[in-house]
């Protein structure tokens, strides 16, 4: 299994005043062909920053350290124009918010044609035809009519289908979906997840699925990486990590998933406290201040990732003791 994407000690830093603050620290991950990786974590855990490090669309003042390899070649060393070409041909993104991710004053059809900007072998008419086909494929009735409409005339679910169709139009070998269902209602979310599952089969490559919802990971992903304060605290096959979580943060996240609660309760479980700000990380283990099982060593030394099974590792001091 060759790696489609491999991250080697990737850090993402943002300028804050005079210093650079890390939003993502030392992430090493590999995603193989045909694989779907779930990136899970709370808001502010660095999921989206990691995605922008892969696409190269960091806001100004941001910097990526480490190596991002796509199909073996280092992306961080590429010229801006080569990276742009790669984004239009090999790496596609499904945006988070369907309500704002399409241009409000341009008809759907013209936008879908524009997204195939780098498919230089396709004529304008062919781009239009392919866009219509793709809209039909993602389950839209009367695609030609949809393409003559403006985004505000469509519902959120339909817009997200349009966004998925747009991403698939470039035949990506890496599809990055950044919380594509967060802004949608539960029924629509279900349909969109089904679509992404189908899309996974249609593309010859890998999918990175960013979410904060463990139940979505269970339904969609092969492997999962749990992010906390910019660090991967646990990673492994979905079955193992969700069935036998080793890191207290993963356990806490799973306990918060309403789908996993069997006895009715008045209050949904939460993890007390908030994710520390990137510029203000605690010493030792980043999760220690919120961890219910913290030992004295946790606030002194940062734990190294250690193996918990085949392809499964977690960064926790309790690993040796448990």
């Amino acid at each position: 299994m060759s790696a489609v994407l491999s991250l080697e000690s990737v850090s993402v830093l943002y300028r804050k005043g005079r210093t650079m603050v890390p939003a993502v620290r030392d992430v090493t991950l590999e995603i193989g062909r045909g694989e779907t990786l779930g990136l899970v974590g709370e808001s502010g855990s660095g999921k989206s920053s990691l995605a922008t490090a892969i696409t190269g669309l960091l806001p100004s003042g941001g910097r990526v350290d480490g190596t991002v390899r796509f199909e073996g070649s280092d992306l961080t060393g590429l010229a801006a124009s080569d990276r742009r070409r790669l984004r239009g041909t090999a790496i596609a993104t499904i945006a988070q918010d369907p309500f704002t991710s399409l241009n409000p004053v341009v008809r759907i059809g013209r936008q879908l044609v524009e997204f195939q900007h780098w498919q230089t072998d396709r004529s304008r008419a062919e781009r239009w035809r392919r866009a219509a086909e793709m809209l039909a494929q993602v389950g839209l009735s009367d695609p030609e009519a949809r393409m003559r409409q403006y985004p505000h005339q469509l519902s959120g679910g339909i817009r997200q289908r349009v966004a998925i169709a747009a991403a698939l139009l470039v035949n990506p070998r890496l599809l990055i979906a950044d919380e594509p269902t967060t802004a949608l209602d539960a029924t629509t979310e279900d349909q969109i997840i089904g679509l992404i599952r189908n899309a996974r089969q249609a593309i010859d490559g890998a999918v990175v699925f960013i979410t904060h919802d463990m139940s979505v990971v269970r339904r969609l992903c092969d492997r999962v990486a749990v992010l906390y304060a910019g660090q991967v605290v646990e990673t492994g096959p979905v079955g193992t990590v969700l069935g036998d979580p080793r890191h207290p943060y993963t356990k806490a996240l799973l306990a918060c998933d309403p789908a996993g609660i069997e006895t009715p309760t008045r209050l949904l479980p939460t993890i007390p406290g908030t994710v520390p700000a990137p510029g203000n990380l605690p010493p030792g283990c980043v999760f220690a201040p919120r961890c219910t099982a913290a030992l004295p060593v946790c606030s002194q030394r940062s734990p190294r990732p250690s193996a918990a099974g085949p392809g499964h590792s977690a960064a926790c001091h309790l690993m040796g003791t448990a």
Binding site: T55, L57, R85, R87, T93, L102, E114, A166
Partner: peptide
């Protein structure tokens, strides 16, 4: 600064083209 600009960038459209056309 709006989101749809990011979408165009995510599809590799050049900044100048985005600015003038969209």
């Amino acid at each position: 600064g709006e989101n749809h600009v990011k979408t165009y960038r995510a599809f590799g459209v050049s900044n100048l083209r985005i600015a003038l056309r969209f």
